[in-house]
Design a protein around this nucleic acid. Structure first.
Length: 560
RNA sequence: CGGGGAGUGGCGCAGUCUGGUAGCGCACCCGGCUGGGGGCCGGGCGGUCGCAGGUUCAAAUCCUGUCUCCCCGACCA
């Protein structure tokens, strides 16, 4: 029995003052979640139903590809984390037990699951394996935000695959691609599978599942047949009209002009006809000069992978000592290796000269300086890929899949014996999915000015049955009967039989966002009809009372 | 970590500058009316003003310290 009069669904007329994101506002207002602390949230009954429905979809699809569900603890000894080299991560919560033993609160479970598999697996005959669980993750986020979108504690489905080698890993990865595609579809979300950064730990390949929405913290670059996180995206630049070439670079006076805007204005050339030079210093203190088009920006993640490691921007005195006055440096005559972005087409450019208050024009890469080509610029809207224009959208990362290779099996010693009796490392993959983020993404994507509009597959209830009429009235009698019939047909029904005004009931129903609202009131009763509102689009329908339950069930089946 | 803002009843807020013992709307409780879009009338309950210390005859208000939360950025393997 789910009677709204006794259901813990504390709705609010106004959003919390500090809520910005739509999903944050609506999930609180609709009574789905409540905040406990920064980045810490309780799921109230209706919200938890949504979460559980998403979990069940994920579980079914994981089982369908041969996944085996288990459960590992949140609290770990520090030791395996030291062995894997992850103990130093700042986001990792660390604590001590009463005996002073160092412990961690897990942010994922590679160390533990690899330990179990390494201990239990001896032979190639025991591989491959897919293990997964739903478990709380703890992360000491520098900045939790936007309600349930970025929290310090959250439930994640994390799966781990164990294979004999790279081919096995590829196959396991492909299974997860298929499973994740189905999960996102079944959750009723708009989503993209995008190429992703493999991150600091290296890795052999990664994709992220992104749900586009305004509150998203990530940006995805999209074109026909292309989808990538902007962190790794690559595209053809908009061409730029370059001035005619010169026989050799010509020095020009540019007193006090140090920015692209100033130069471009003063010289009457487009910003893209300039080259910007960024001096960076690598871990070994050696310097590189990164050169990109004047209208472009550096993508630090792409630059990091191009450099093959960490870097920092050069300090003023380093620039002064090795390249010339800051604001006027350029690649011509530079005494450090030049990395030229691939978006710089052949032609004559304006660059720094290495002298105060002067630039060079007519500079041609190759002729006037030598370089190594790199791809380090941030893509921008209007770039193209195979002629198709690129657009950039904000999105929430709801899942990620990652080829780990031997990143964990090696330090943790997870090996097996192959057919020839040789000891080999197990090849692993890891695959995360966040039900809370999927729920928030659904709220973001389908909400309207009245509230939430859940996809049918993850709504807290299928039907919100609203009765308008006092206890004991005919309307009540009919609604009571309809409630039983809907339940008998397997429809999850929330029955609003509270003794309050119709406006409040309708407002609450539209706020909570179940796919269908069925109304029984004196008006419809007199006409021998019941009234149904489809939440998505707020379309209203009526039908005869007699076959109401069956008709509603059929209507529900056809909803998104 | 840098910048900005906020803690006053369940929620949203005023009061703080200029010190005088806390108020509004909604919600909640009781009674009545109403009954298809958060309705109306009457009567009520509820707050050590984040916490600690200080100044003062007197502190939500002034001073010091501290905790918490939010937003932007950095960060988020």
């Amino acid at each position: 029995m789910t009677l709204l009069s006794s259901y813990f669904l504390p709705t609010e007329r106004e959003p919390p003052a500090d809520a910005e994101a739509i999903s944050h506002q609506l999930m609180v207002r609709a009574g789905l979640v409540r905040q406990v602390g920064s980045g810490l949230w309780s799921w109230l009954p209706a919200g938890w139903r949504v979460h559980q429905r998403i979990v069940q979809i994920v579980r079914e699809e994981m089982n369908a590809i041969g996944g085996q569900e288990l459960l590992m603890p949140v609290l770990h000894p520090a030791e395996p984390w030291r062995r894997s080299g992850r103990y130093g991560i700042e986001e990792l919560f660390k604590l001590k037990d009463r005996r002073g033993a160092e412990m961690v609160l897990a942010m994922t479970h590679e160390e533990i699951v690899t330990g179990h598999v390494g201990a239990a697996i001896q032979s190639y005959r025991q591989l491959p394996l897919i293990l997964y669980h739903f478990q709380i993750k703890e992360r000491d986020e520098p900045r939790p935000r936007a309600g349930v979108l970025r929290t310090r504690e959250f439930i994640m489905k994390d799966a781990y695959t164990f294979d004999r080698g790279p081919e096995g890993l590829d196959a396991a990865y492909e299974k997860h691609v298929a499973a994740y595609d189905r999960i996102c579809d079944r959750c009723g979300l708009e989503w993209y599978r995008v190429e992703a950064d493999v991150g600091m730990m290296g890795g052999l390949g990664a994709h992220e599942y992104m749900a586009p929405c305004a509150a998203g913290e990530n940006e995805v670059a999209l074109a026909a047949g292309y989808a990538a996180n902007v962190e790794v995206a690559s595209a053809d630049p908009r061409p730029v009209a370059l001035p005619a070439g010169l026989d050799s670079p010509q020095l020009i006076d540019t007193p006090g002009l140090t920015t692209v805007e100033q130069l471009s204005g003063a010289l009457e050339v487009p910003p893209g006809a300039l080259l910007k030079a960024f001096p960076v210093v690598l871990d070994d203190e050696s310097m590189r000069l990164v050169v990109i088009r004047g209208d472009h920006r550096i993508n630090e993640i792409k630059l990091r992978s191009a450099l093959g490691g960490e870097f920092r921007t050069a300090r003023r005195e380093e620039v002064q000592a090795r390249l010339g006055p800051p604001g006027f440096i350029g690649p011509v005559g530079a005494q450090v290796p030049v990395l030229l972005d691939q978006a710089v087409a052949p032609g004559a450019y304006v660059t720094g000269s290495g002298r105060v208050d002067a630039h060079l024009r007519g500079v041609e890469p190759g002729r006037d300086f030598s370089y190594e080509t790199v791809d380090v610029r941030a893509v921008m809207a209007g770039d193209t890929i195979n002629g198709s224009e690129l657009r950039i959208e904000p999105a929430i990362e709801i899942g990620n899949i990652f080829k780990l290779g031997t990143r964990y099996s090696e330090p943790l010693g997870a090996t097996y014996l192959d057919e020839s009796g040789n000891t080999e490392l197990i090849w692993m993959g890891s695959y995360g999915f966040g039900p809370a983020r999927a729920a928030a993404a659904a709220v973001e994507q389908f909400a309207d000015e009245r509230g939430i509009s859940w996809p049918r597959t993850i709504a807290p209830f299928d039907i919100q049955l609203v009765v308008l009429g006092k206890p004991g009235s005919q309307e009540r009698e009919l609604a009571d009967r309809l409630y039983r019939e809907l339940q008998e047909m397997g429809l999850r029904t929330l029955y609003d039989e509270r003794d309050i005004g119709p406006g409040e009931k309708f407002a609450d129903a539209e706020l909570l966002g179940c796919p269908l609202r069925v109304t029984v009131g004196p008006r419809s009763l007199a006409a021998g009809e019941i009234e149904v509102q489809v939440r998505r689009g707020r379309r209203s329908l009526t039908g005869p009372v007699a076959e109401a339950a069956g008709a509603v069930a059929e209507l529900w089946q056809g909803l998104p």
